[in-house]
Amino acid sequence: MRARAHLTVELDSRGRNVVRELSSASPLTLMPRRGAVRLAAGPTDRAVVHLVNSATAPLGGDELDLRVRVGAGARLLLRGVAATLVLPGHRRGSSRSTVHVEVAEGGTLEYLPEHTVVTARAEHEAEFRAELAEDALLRCREVLVLGRSNERPGLLRTSTHVTRGEVPLVRQTLELGNSRLEASAGYLAGARVVATESVVWKNDPVAPTSGEWWSLTPLAAGGATATALAPDAVTARHRLTEALRTHPDGKELVREHW
């Protein structure tokens, strides 16, 4: 299955966030929560769009592509509604999903999908790429679950790239599917769940904070990354929240965390 979906959110002349362009393509279905936009109308509102998997995907052979543009001063919360199961297909070959976002001057994007469960024999490649204008804000989360219970994960390669103008802020790739590597304290230390969130918000932490298998670290060129490793998804979420709470904008970041 090949699918391309687009989403554009802009500020209208009255300062409201409006969805200008929205094209879903099964299984990538975008559901705007219109009520929320209207209710909160005013300069501080935001558009809320849910990303719904309307078919079992990704399966081997699928290519899913989502493009998101947030206009100058606009604000979008794009969130998932359920976990994504990455499954092997009937045909051989890997599946691929890409999410490319552009956030213009003064724009804000919160990309908070639910977790991704990498099932046995899956072969998937995921890429998230964000291009930010100088004063754009972004938070993007990824929670990877290595297989369902008592299941070895298949192959996954997932990359996150965040750039601000010409400057790279984050480039990170994780590969799953090698149990010896995942068990090593030099890679995942046997964790079953890896949660990360990159935050380019109003303030940056001055110093890193860390606790039991979590940390929030300032990045070299601006922004911060929260990282948590855990034996299960509940603990991972808890640890990621702990990390985000220590961010200078932590109150705002954890308010609507999940």
Binding site: E175, A185, G186, Y187, L188, S215, T227, L229
Partner: peptide, 13 residues
């Protein structure tokens, strides 16, 4: 851009 989450956490700890 190979990541190493456990190493990063251990380094901070």
């Amino acid at each position: 851009a190979v990541g190493a989450p456990a190493l990063d956490l251990l380094a901070q700890a």
